[in-house]
Design a protein around this nucleic acid. Structure first.
Lengths: 110, 110
DNA sequence: CATTCAATTCCATTACACATGAAATATGGA
DNA sequence: TCCATATTTCATGTGTAATGGAATTGAATG
């Protein structure tokens, strides 16, 4: 069942607007962004964005919290972690030299 | 253009058979697997698999080399590296504590 | 050259994803 | 209570992906 979750996460991200939304929320960090601001930033109709937020939420990639009239969205780092772990799992096939360059690339440049 | 490449790679992986193919090739490592063996392993009609191999190749996630009558496929670790780099880029939003758990998860257990 | 095997391409059918207008819902304030 | 704002749900038209049968290409063998 893990596999289906990975597929739905990948499918959620494989979309022009949703990948923008996700990266926007990742950059926004813990304070998140209200749905209206996301729509404004991406110049998107509210209902189109709403549907994409729903898909990203179902995929476990973002979370939300109501805040008065608006709803604030956050990147779900745990979901991202699960997805990347699945993608990298069994990455070696017994040979570390295969996966090491991949891991080196992901080194965080905070 | 980088973004479109990421999207097509994600879309390629967001598929029941293609994610199996990719992981199979990752596990197989540098020696790769001939198309026929992949089809047998996944119990798939040859033409369906062939189409999915084409999509994965176009996405930069696998490579191939003819070997007599058969064609041997390999996971393209460079393509994977590009994809993961894009996904993890700007992962911090100025706060290392956000992305660190994600990076820790990906630690290779070779 | 004819044959056989491997893999791909072509094609038609089916099914699902996407975007958006319009309507509905939820919240806070007058 | 009634209105304004923010967001979601519904219904629908459009397009694109997935699938597998049949035909085709490419390579080795006798």
């Amino acid at each position: 069942m893990e596999k289906n979750r990975a597929i739905s996460s990948l499918a959620a991200l494989a979309h022009d607007q949703r990948i923008d939304v996700f990266r926007l929320l990742v950059q926004a960090g813990p304070e998140g962004i209200p749905a209206g601001e996301i729509a404004a930033a991406l110049k998107s109709p509210a209902n189109t964005l709403s549907n994409n937020l729903r898909i990203l939420t179902a995929a476990g990639l973002i979370r939300s919290a109501r805040e008065g009239r608006s709803i604030r969205y956050f990147a779900d780092m745990d979901g991202m972690r699960v997805l990347l772990a699945f993608l990298m799992q069994d990455c070696c096939g017994g040979r570390a030299e295969l996966c090491q360059p991949v891991l080196d690339t992901i080194t965080c440049n905070c």
